[in-house]
Every structure is written in C-alpha cells, then in structure tokens.
Amino acid sequence: MYLNVLRYLARRVVFALAAFLFFIVAIFTLPRLIPGNPVDVLVSRLVMQAQANPELIHAVHRKFMEEFGVGLPLWKQFTRFVAQLLRGDLGTSISMYPRKVSEILALFLPWTVALLIPAILVSWAVGNFLGVLIAWRRGTVLDRVITPILLTINRIPFYWFAMVMLFIFAVYLRFFPIGDTYRWGLSPGLNWNFVVNYLHHYALPFLTLVVISTGGWAIGMRSMTIYELGSDYILFADLLGLPQRRLLAYAFRSACLPQVTELGLNFGLMLGGSLLLELVFNYRGMGSITFQALSTLDYPLIQGIFIVLAAAVIAVNLVVDIVYGLVDPRIKVT
C-alpha cells in the first residue's frame, strides 16, 4: 500500500523536475536564438532606452559577456547557466545595474504571495460552497439567475474589473486609497500602524481578485456536484433512505477531489491575472516588476521573473498533486 503512494509521489516529482528542466532549456535557448551576439543586442536596447553613460554601458557589457559565457561552446554555457541557478544566482539586472536579480525579486515576491495565496484559498472555499449550494437547488430560480451571472463574472477581464473597482471605490467613493502597497514613508514591519495601513491598501485588490475568481470555482463545483449527484452511488444511498444532506455531503466529497487538481491548474492563470491587477492598483509586487522589466527590456530580470514564477507554478502543482494523493483513497490504496 505504501509502495503505491511512493510510486505515485515519485512520478509526480519526476514530472515536476522534467517540466522545470523544459523551462530552463527554453529560457536558455531563446536569447541565444537571436542572430549575432545576444549581449550586444540586449545591451544595445539599454542604450536606446536610457541615455546611460558610456562607461556604465561598457561595464554592463563586460559583465554580461561573462555571465552569458559568450564564446564558450553551448554545452559549457548551459552547465554554467545551471550551476549559477543552483547557487541561486539569477544574474545581474540591466536596468538596475549593478543590483542582482535575486535581490530585486526578494523585495517584490513576498507582496505578491501575500495577495495571491489568501485570495486563491478564499475564492476556492467560497466558490465551492456556492457551487454546491446552486447544485443542490439546480433548476430553481436561484440556479437560473445566478449561474449565468457567475459565467459572466468568470469572463470579466481581471485588469478591467480592477480598473472599475478602483474607480468606484477609491476614486469616486474614496473608501480606499487609490493604489500603492502602503503609505509612502512607512517601513514594513509587524506594528499596528503599518499593518492597518497595509490592509487598507490590500483590501481592494484582494476583493477584486476574490470576486473574479469565485465565479469560475462556483461554476466548476456546480457541474461537478450535479454530475456526482446523478451517479449510481447517490441513487443507492437515496434508495436506502439516507437524508438529502447526507447525499449532498457524499457528492461534495467526490466533487471536491477534481477541484483540488484544478487548484493547481488554475494557480498559473490566477498568477497571470494578479500580475495585471497589481499594475492597475500600483501594488508593488511581481506584476510591477514584470512590467518594469518588460518596458526596459531588462532581459536578465525578465528571465529571473520567469524562472521564479515557473518554479512557483510547478511547485504548487506538485504540492497539489501530493495533497490529492493523500485525500483520494483510490490513489492511497490500490
């Protein structure tokens, strides 16, 4: 029995590693597909972007020739690249030279995590609860009215909804600040002043994210529950005289399992959405830094962001798979 669990886990881990390797190879290959010397191209963009002084540009150029390993055979470039990665070295930023990419990311990542993870969990819980409720009352007025509304909410673009929310609640009604992560001048820390101010800034992006993602979860849960309620085991339990509540609990349990997997698959989608949302709210997380990296064409930074987010998506999916293996008896004992 434990052998099965181990085999399952081993497969998931191998899959995760393979996926990560795939992305590493992709990110390694892409800049090297540019004809000519990639460093020339990347640095020349810096010259076009900002009127940097020639000395700085030379320093940057030299630094990147070294980091990229230009001139070395490809396989050596690759092993260097991987070795740097393993040391946690994501290279040096061009636009914020000479700061290290990993330093910059360490500054921005926690804010995104603080926004995204609670929003995902809350919307997952609320959405699933709502979905079961609608499934239970399927075919009634509640279902007929709410389901199309949820479908519509599911299709509202994150970023646009963020703009509308910001306009209504911050610009027009002035309930919330019009953006930023916390008031300028405060320093982050676990003190009353900061936490209250942070939460005040946090509320609107958080709610926006929750409202938008709840729709999708609810729709998924509704159809899964309805599917399970029509299954043979529910019929049998019904014919045994077990009460509605109990039947719903059985269906809920079975319907939850695929929703756990969906959690992993949706993480990536929500991550993408929250990056855009941060932009609208001027929330200083990965979204802002991604936008900055893109607009300055800071390739090392883009690459670093990409690697970190890829790793996060893969890790979350691995965790979800492991949790799934622990809750679904069909995997635990075969």
């Binding site: 043979d232 019929l235 349990r253 079975s254 008896p329 069909r330």
Partner: peptide
Amino acid sequence: PQSALNALIPT
C-alpha cells in the same frame, strides 16, 4: 439497482 457495481461511494 441495476448499476450495483458503481453503487458504493468511491471515497
């Protein structure tokens, strides 16, 4: 029921 093979709760 006819579908007795699937009549037990899988979880």
